[in-house]
Nucleic acid binder design. Structure first.
Length: 593
RNA sequence: GCCCCGGUAGCUCAGUGGAUAGAGCGGCCGCCUCCUAAGCGGCAGGUCACAGGUUCGAUUCCUGUCCGGGGCGCCA
């Protein structure tokens, strides 16, 4: 509708303005807005106001001229110039009513672009470390990424969903040592203190239990004779910043000593414990994502990337490009040349690769696999990391924009903040168990991903009319119920017949609903273009709103066939749009509530 | 210090260079002999953080200040 009116306005512009000016004016986007006040028609544009200055013409006069020059169209009954120079369109009822036919005809495809018409992209999201359960922050990333993938697919992209498993690096060593300590503890053989900087969560005890079941109580032992461990001092609550940093450093050294001990003195045990711990954590993560209805097409292991030699290849490539140098015993990438703030270390003084180094190799690998476009979803705490990886991609491919990153802002629960090493976070599993999949997803998608989200547990948990997720679902259930009732009462509902009597849909609430349904394709488009699935959430609330108002104002199951068929056709169209939209959000559309 | 996100109704948040700033929750008042009341209607509640600037017009754009969250590792 809007795009049709835009072309009409463009034609009017060409008609009214001399050629030179028309060319200039054609660069201004023509904005059409839904009006708030029915006296201003249905759609309005401020085009004349915007152009008044550059064209040096009085806005009101320009608006009048444009209105006069508009080509004849069946789309609107009336055009008015109002206020300082708005052009208000009063749409023809038939123009809106037509949408019912289109929706019923296209069904699940209504609003969707032709599949894969826009190209292919690889979407990486969640990618949480397999060192513990997912928490509520990961949940937001997961639901956002999943809905985004759906929305992009509907918008004409071919999307593959990938989870990058960080199963390499120091965190994995910390995980292994933590489980080792839990195992020894379980066997009554823990002779060192549990590392304060280890992973304290109870969830590692389950892996320790399994290891004991599989290997008995005397495995993974190490005689403590002659082993000197550094201290693992406690951190005072009120410690000054500098002091706290020093203490943390000592704690990390203690942890490093344990890692060293395990890896060098018990290499077999290390591998066994590590693999067992990783497998458990990953299985749990997959199960949680499954509960949320989030699926991946591929799971890419960091260790596999490293072992494939991709890291060495990437370094060699950067070296060949002349943007690598050695300094202070480390290997550096000259990221500054590619837009980053400072040079970045690729290989540390101890000879191991940084996470960044592995990560750039991973991204290079994604491109090498033939993906023309990469989209990553990261937590906002990785914000400083974006320029770094893009710099690397620019250095490797010359196409900095081959990678785009969407940052997810923090989630807070009404009951407080979450942190991983603290050990007492609210897990995503707990949240889903408490709230349910539909409400969890709906709430996560109820705010723009680049805004902080306060998750109102009370409200989400409420199995009552307070809960906003039910508002939309109920609209769908109500329509289903109407059709059930129609069948029970023996009232026919012929969609084909309904389409011929759509002109009976004249109630203001019907007009509002028709206008809402008509906006679905453009809403979906905005959501895809802006990587903003929450726009769909807002939209569906509006559709539900319009449905409920209509439901209150007009009975559907009337005796008169023509009117009943028309109303039921609109009801069926509404049901279709609700289904299509909810499916993209991954929220169910129940038949009964 | 630098970078990112924010500051709009009691709470959580929409919103737009324009015509009377909205919703949900909470509060108050109505509506089921009628397709599901998980609904609908109404009332109360606002210096759109503050100060400048651009503009015919700023809550919206720019700058600064204040306040809140996050980030600035040879961690991942």
């Amino acid at each position: 509708m809007k795009s049709q009116l835009q072309s009409l306005l463009r034609a009017a512009l060409a008609d009214v303005l001399p050629q030179a000016e028309a060319a200039r004016a054609s660069e201004t986007p023509i904005l059409l807005e839904s009006t708030k006040d029915p006296r201003h028609g249905d759609l309005a544009t401020n085009l004349a106001l915007t152009l008044a200055r550059p064209l040096n013409r009085p806005p009101r006069q320009l608006a009048e001229a444009l209105a006069r020059a508009l080509p004849k169209s069946e789309l609107f009954d009336k055009v008015e110039v109002a206020g300082p120079g708005f052009i208000n369109f009063f749409l023809a009822p038939a123009a809106l009513q037509r949408v019912v036919a289109e929706i019923l005809e296209r069904g699940a495809a209504y609003g969707r672009q032709p599949a894969a018409a826009r190209g292919r992209l690889l979407l990486e999201f969640v990618s949480a470390n397999p060192t513990g359960p997912l928490h509520v922050g990961h949940g937001r990333n997961a639901v956002y990424g999943d809905a985004l993938a759906n929305v992009l697919e509907a918008g004409g992209w071919q999307v593959e969903r990938e989870y990058y498993v960080n199963d390499a690096g120091r965190q994995v060593d910390v995980l292994a040592v933590s489980v080792w300590a839990r195992y020894l503890e379980l066997c009554g053989a823990l002779w060192f203190s549990f590392p304060r900087r280890g992973y304290p969560g109870d969830y590692l005890r389950a892996t320790a239990e399994k290891l004991r079941a599989a290997h008995g109580t005397s495995a993974f032992r190490l005689a403590q004779d002659g082993i000197e461990l550094p201290p693992d001092p406690p951190l005072a609550e009120n410690a000054a910043e500098a002091e706290a940093a020093a203490v943390k450093q000592q704690q990390e050294r203690y942890l490093d000593a344990l890692i060293e001990l395990l890896k060098t003195r018990l290499p077999q045990a290390y591998a066994t414990i590590r693999d067992s711990a990783l497998a458990d954590q990953l299985a749990r993560i997959r199960a949680t994502l499954e509960q949320l209805g989030v699926r991946f097409d591929s799971w890419q292991s960091e260790r596999a990337v490293v072992e494939s030699g991709a890291v060495e290849r990437a370094i060699a490539q950067l070296r060949a490009a002349g943007c690598v140098y050695e300094q202070d015993g480390a290997l550096w990438f000259d990221a500054v040349r590619f837009g980053d703030d400072k040079p970045r270390v690729l290989r540390k003084r101890d000879g191991t690769a940084t996470y960044f180094c592995n990560d750039l190799a991973y991204h290079a690998d994604k491109l090498a696999r033939g993906w023309p476009r990469l989209l990553d979803v990261w937590g906002a705490d990785h914000h400083g990391y974006v320029a770094r990886v893009q710099a690397a991609i620019a250095a490797l491919t010359g196409r900095r924009d081959a990678l785009q990153v969407q940052l997810i802002q923090f989630v807070t629960l009404s009951s407080g903040r979450m942190g991983k090493r603290s050990g007492n976070f609210v897990t995503l599993e707990e949240l889903i168990g408490e709230v349910g999949r539909d409400a969890t997803r709906f709430f996560y998608l109820s705010r723009s991903h680049d805004q902080h989200l306060e998750f109102d547990l009370e409200l989400a948990r409420a199995h009552s009319n307070d809960n906003p997720v039910y508002y939309v679902q109920y609209a769908h259930a109500r329509i289903e119920s109407v059709f059930r009732q129609a069948a029970e009462r023996g009232l026919s509902h012929d969609p084909r017949a309904g389409l011929t009597t759509l002109d009976r849909l004249t109630d203001p609430t019907e007009k509002t609903l028709l206008a809402a349904l008509e906006r679905y394709p453009e809403t979906l488009n905005s959501a895809a273009e802006g990587y903003a699935p929450h726009l769909l959430t807002f939209y569906l609330r509006e559709v539900a709103d319009a449905l409920h108002q209509w439901y209150g104002a007009c009975p559907f199951l009337v005796e008169e066939d023509a009117l009943r068929h028309a109303r039921l056709a609109l009801a069926a169209a509404t049901r279709q749009v609700l289904r299509n939209g909810l499916a993209l959000l991954g929220v169910s559309a129940p038949e009964k509530m």
